[in-house]
Amino acid sequence: MNTHQEYGFFLSYNNMEDIFRLPVNPETLEIKEVGEGKSYTIIDLGEINAISYPKLTEITLESIFPAQRYPFVLVPETGKNRLLKPFEYVEMIKKWMTSRRPIRFVFSGLETRESAQTSDLPVSMAMSIESFNWKLSAGTSGDIEYSLSLKKYVFYQAAPVKVVKGAAKTQQQRAGDRKAPAVYKLKAGDNLWRIAQKVLGDGSRWKEIQKLNDIPDSELRKLPVGKTIKLP
């Protein structure tokens, strides 16, 4: 059986209101995950290391926004993820930065076989744009070279305070980038990963939907259109 491995990088904003695939895959994906431990020297004991919480994940991408359709350009000519003009990508990223809201970064590895297609998403997280540097390539091609630095974003919000018998208590509330509905009506072409990604903001939660609705494995590839399912 022939197997073809294709990788894709996607950036989206405001729950996929804006979304595009990087037209040219970066040659490398730099992911930085480090701790913040500190060393101390104690008399009669020597140096000790205090382990702290890890810092937020940082990702760096470097590639080009092409002005023409080279053989290595990955996006289609038409459709929602069509190839944009180089400055359209630049303006979209600048607009996202100005909004001071997080974006979502997805790195996908799509393993395509002759008779079936499966997908694996090793990276999918909300991130802030820390820096965006770009320049026109040398010559007259019109390509734009860019470097994009992202940092993992943790959703948070202030918790209201309640005073109980003179003591202050806080009510913890889970923050997120969307308010998920309780049910979802299946449409043609739906699959559980796509529903979890679109509605819950995390495609890896598709198994929760399957378990909650007692959906057998044999039904996963062809869900009944029009059926209403519950969401976690």
Rank of each mutant, 00 (worst) to 15 (best):
L148F: 07
I93D: 00
D177A: 05
I129T: 01
L148P: 01
A126L: 10
A175T: 12
K187M: 12
S63D: 01
F155A: 10
V90F: 00
F155M: 05
K179S: 07
T118W: 05
K85I: 05
F155R: 10
R100D: 12
K95T: 08
V154C: 10
S147R: 05
E77N: 09
A182P: 04
Y184C: 06
D120A: 11
A180F: 15
L110I: 12
S141E: 08
E111L: 12
I195C: 05
Y184W: 04
A182N: 13
Q157V: 15
F87V: 07
I129C: 00
A138F: 07
S119N: 12
V163K: 15
P66Y: 00
E77V: 13
K95E: 07
Y184G: 02
D190I: 02
K169S: 09
T118Y: 08
K80N: 14
S124H: 12
M127F: 11
V73E: 07
L84A: 13
L74F: 02
T118S: 12
L150I: 01
T118D: 05
T118N: 09
V161P: 10
I64Q: 00
G142R: 00
E130L: 09
Y153P: 02
E130W: 09
Y184M: 14
S149W: 04
Y184A: 05
E88M: 04
S99W: 03
S63V: 03
I129V: 06
T170Q: 11
G142Q: 00
R82S: 07
Q157I: 15
T170M: 12
D120L: 08
S119K: 15
E88Y: 03
K165L: 11
V75G: 03
Q171W: 14
K94P: 08
L110E: 15
L150R: 04
K169P: 05
T118C: 03
S119H: 14
K162S: 05
S141F: 00
K151M: 03
Q68S: 14
E145Y: 06
L192Q: 02
A126Y: 14
R69T: 09
K135F: 08
S141A: 07
L83I: 03
G79A: 01
L84T: 08
Y89P: 01
I93T: 02
V106L: 07
P122A: 05
G79C: 01
Y89K: 02
P160I: 01
S149N: 13
E111T: 06
K179D: 14
F155V: 06
F132W: 13
R174P: 15
L84C: 06
S124V: 10
P160N: 07
V161A: 12
Y156S: 15
V163F: 11
I103P: 00
I195P: 03
I144M: 10
E88L: 04
R104P: 02
R194H: 15
I195M: 10
N133E: 14
